[in-house]
C-alpha cells in the first residue's frame, strides 16, 4: 500500500533557512493567498447583490461577519463549540489510543497484517453515517454516541497509517536491534514508534479533520447539541446569517486542528535532517 498523502506532509513545512530573498518571495505568496480570499468574498458578495438567491438562503458576507462577531460574545456559541470539539476530540483520542498500538503490532507481524486485511479494508470503506440509526438505537442520543461514531470514523486511517509505518522500519535498523538484543517492549517504544511517527501523523491529520466533520454530521442528523445542531436550528428559523456564522466556525475548527497537528508533527519530527523538511 502506498500513501499518496505521505508526499503532501512534507511540502507544507516551510524551509528553515529564509534569506531576505526568500522572505520577499514569501511575502508575495502571502499577498496572493490573501488576494484569493478577497476574490472569493467579492464573488460571494456579487452573487448576493445580484438577487439570484434570497437573503434568507444565501446571506451576504457582511451580514455573516456581523452575526459571527455577535456570536463570539454569546455563551450559547461557546457551549456549542465546546460540545462539538469535545465529541470530536474524545473520539479522536480513543481512535489514536486504539489505532496506533494495534497498527504498530499488526504491522510488525506480516501474518497478522495479511489475515486482517480483508476485514479492515471492508470496515474502513463502510460509510459510518449509515450506521447512525443503529448507534442511536443501541447507545441512544448521547454525547458518548457522538464520540463513538467519531471513533469509528477515525480509527481506520490511524490504524492503517500506523501499520504502514511499522512495516517501513529500515531492515538495517531491525538487524541492529536484533544484534543488540533489544527487548520487545523497548523495540516498540523506541524503534517502531518513532520510525512510524511520520506515517502516524499523516493518519492523525486525516482523522482530525474527519473527527470534526463527523461530529457535526451527527449533530445535524440527531438532536445532540453542538455546532451542527445550531446550524440546523438557525437555518430552520430563517436566521441563515447566524447559521453561516456557525458553518464558518466549523471551517475554522477544522483548519485550526490541521494547523495544530502540523505543528505537533514538526515538534515530534525535529530529529529529521533539514533536507527532509524542504
Amino acid at each position: 500500500m502506498t500513501t499518496p498523502v505521505q508526499a503532501a506532509t512534507t511540502e507544507v513545512l516551510e524551509p528553515a533557512a529564509a534569506g531576505s530573498k526568500t522572505r520577499g518571495r514569501r511575502a508575495r505568496v502571502h499577498a496572493y493567498q490573501l488576494l484569493c480570499v478577497v476574490l472569493v468574498l467579492l464573488l460571494w458578495g456579487a452573487v448576493t447583490v445580484s438577487g439570484l438567491f434570497t437573503a434568507s438562503s444565501l446571506p451576504s458576507p457582511a451580514s455573516v461577519a456581523t452575526e459571527w462577531l455577535h456570536l463570539l460574545g454569546a455563551p450559547v456559541f461557546w457551549q456549542a463549540v465546546w460540545d462539538t470539539l469535545r465529541g470530536a476530540l474524545v473520539g479522536l483520542l480513543f481512535a489514536g489510543a486504539v489505532g496506533v498500538p494495534l497498527g504498530l503490532v499488526t504491522g510488525t507481524y506480516a501474518a497478522a497484517e495479511l489475515s486482517s486485511r480483508i476485514l479492515v479494508d471492508f470496515l474502513r470503506s463502510f460509510p459510518v453515517i449509515a450506521l447512525l440509526p443503529v448507534f442511536l438505537l443501541v447507545l441512544g442520543s448521547t454525547p458518548e454516541m457522538k464520540s463513538t461514531v467519531v471513533f469509528i470514523a477515525c480509527v481506520f486511517p490511524i490504524f492503517l497509517q500506523a501499520q504502514y509505518g511499522a512495516r517501513s522500519v529500515p531492515p538495517m535498523i531491525s538487524e541492529t536491534v536484533r544484534a543488540y538484543r533489544i527487548p520487545r517492549l523497548l523495540r516498540y517504544t523506541k524503534v517502531v514508534l518513532p520510525s512510524a511517527t511520520p506515517s502516524i501523523m499523516t493518519g492523525l491529520r486525516l482523522a482530525a479533520t474527519t473527527s470534526i466533520l463527523v461530529a457535526i454530521g451527527v449533530e445535524i442528523l440527531t438532536t445532540l447539541p453542538g455546532i451542527g445542531h445550531e446550524v440546523t436550528q438557525h437555518q430552520q428559523n430563517g436566521n441563515s446569517a447566524v447559521a453561516f456564522g456557525y458553518i464558518f466556525t466549523a471551517g475554522l475548527l477544522g483548519y485550526g486542528i490541521n494547523r495544530g497537528s502540523m505543528l505537533l508533527e514538526s515538534i515530534l519530527l525535529r530529529w529529521r535532517p533539514p533536507a527532509h523538511t524542504v
Binding site: 541492529t176 518513532p194 520510525s195
Partner: peptide, 16 residues
C-alpha cells in the same frame, strides 16, 4: 558479541 555494521548511516537510529 557486539556488531558494527558497514552501513553506519542505516544502523544508527536517526531519531535518537
Amino acid at each position: 558479541i557486539a556488531v558494527v555494521f558497514q552501513d553506519y548511516r542505516g544502523s544508527l537510529l536517526p531519531w535518537m
